[in-house]
Design a protein around this nucleic acid. Structure first.
Lengths: 226, 226
DNA sequence: GACAGTATGTCACTAAGTGACACCCACCAC
DNA sequence: GTGGTGGGTGTCACTTAGTGACATACTGTC
């Protein structure tokens, strides 16, 4: 019973995530083409071939349909951070993992088209307050995850005030970098080449996180802690 | 004509702000008493004695009605930061200004009841996603202001990437502190005494901002810059 | 092949939010 | 005084985001 529950639960969770992403893609496309206000729930539903009611079962609001597309990249980064070994510097770990991903030997093949769509949504958020709210809500989730990661690394509880400060600052640093990179890529006619230097990119993220946490997060730990 | 426009503009802007605050108070009261979902726009309008249509003229959404109440305190802090002299440490400036405010010799008498209401709204945001979104949107505005302040202090443009990183980290540090203090006060039965030590409070804010900016913001400047 | 649980469709309904228009009131010119 | 002019407000009709309730189809288990 336990095992059964767990297995079907996991299955449907994957299915659910895939479907949400699919809906998100169509919604993002529509948002970009016609604007958020001019895109109705019915149109999103039609575009993905579902009933409108089902859309609202998977998303709380129209704007939150953009969330999965926008979160893909960030989720990947969080995964990378979660695998960060204690006795390694953040710079080293990020460069290693990110080049690894580009070479395809690690998990998720975040589609280039999806990344572009994500950047467009973040760009749209500049002029569409509702989208901005959705983006910030997504980043809020990231912040919580970040607190877990930081707390674990420093061996402190997640609700510790200092941990929450670190988590929040680190998360917003990542957010700002994402916004900046997205803006630059879009301004350059959707050309990624400026950021093809993966180690440099990794260094920027690492440095930002290190600075935002006042140096508390970034260095290798000589691991006196269990 | 110019002068006239300007004066009436300023007048109506003040009036508008006062009215928004008034609406916000009633909305916050209702949100806290009955929950956000159970509070309708009509009820807010009735509570403040306006037509529902007028509510929507002053607020984009139901949840954003909470914004002015919640922002009062933060706006005050931003004002204090804007007056921060270059050759003074953040700790010194904050303690001086905040004790000054408490003593009433500086600008805004942020009502205690309003502060309490604000804390309640932030607390409610834990369980009401729509309120959380509104709160994050408000903090997003704070972040922009923070970038201006930081940029001016460091003599760099506001859209400079590093400035934006500092601004974002500082703003989220302030946000986390606000959330924490609010939570503690509410948990203590709405008792502020734990935070009556104003210098200690100021030191906490200053230290948080200093850490979040990797030490770039906080020290006095020996002002080689014009 | 019957069964249980879950995802979906359909339809009726609530309420958030907008547009259009009339009104009122304060200020200004004459 | 009368007659504008403009900004804020009320009224009402309307759109549409989002929910509840119920029926149905799908998926895997025994």
């Amino acid at each position: 019973m336990e095992a059964h529950k767990r297995s079907t639960g996991a299955m449907s969770e994957q299915r659910r995530a895939r479907l949400r992403l699919e809906i998100s893609r169509e919604a993002a496309r529509l948002f970009w083409d016609k604007g958020v206000a001019a895109t109705s729930g019915d149109q999103i539903a039609a575009a993905v071939g579902l009933s409108t009611r089902t859309i609202w079962r998977h998303f709380r609001s129209k704007e939150s349909c953009a969330e999965p597309i926008v979160m893909q990249g960030v989720v990947t980064l969080l995964g990378v951070l979660r695998r960060w070994p204690r006795r390694r510097s953040l710079e080293d770990h990020l460069t290693a993992e990110l080049t690894g991903i580009r070479n395809g030997d690690t998990t998720p093949p975040v589609d280039l088209a999806d990344e572009l769509l994500a950047m467009r949504m973040i760009r749209l958020a500049d002029t569409e307050p509702a989208l901005r709210a959705a983006w910030l809500m997504a980043c809020d989730q990231v912040e919580r995850e970040m607190c877990v990661i930081v707390g674990e690394r420093l061996g402190r509880p997640v609700d510790d005030l200092e941990i929450r400060l670190y988590g929040a600052s680190a998360a917003s640093a990542v957010r700002v970098l994402d916004e900046h990179i997205g803006a630059v890529v879009l301004a350059a006619g959707e050309d990624f080449t400026e950021f093809s230097d993966v180690p440099a990119l990794a260094r920027r993220y690492a440095e930002a996180i290190r600075t935002a946490t006042g140096g508390a997060i970034g260095d290798p730990l000589d691991d006196l802690i269990g």
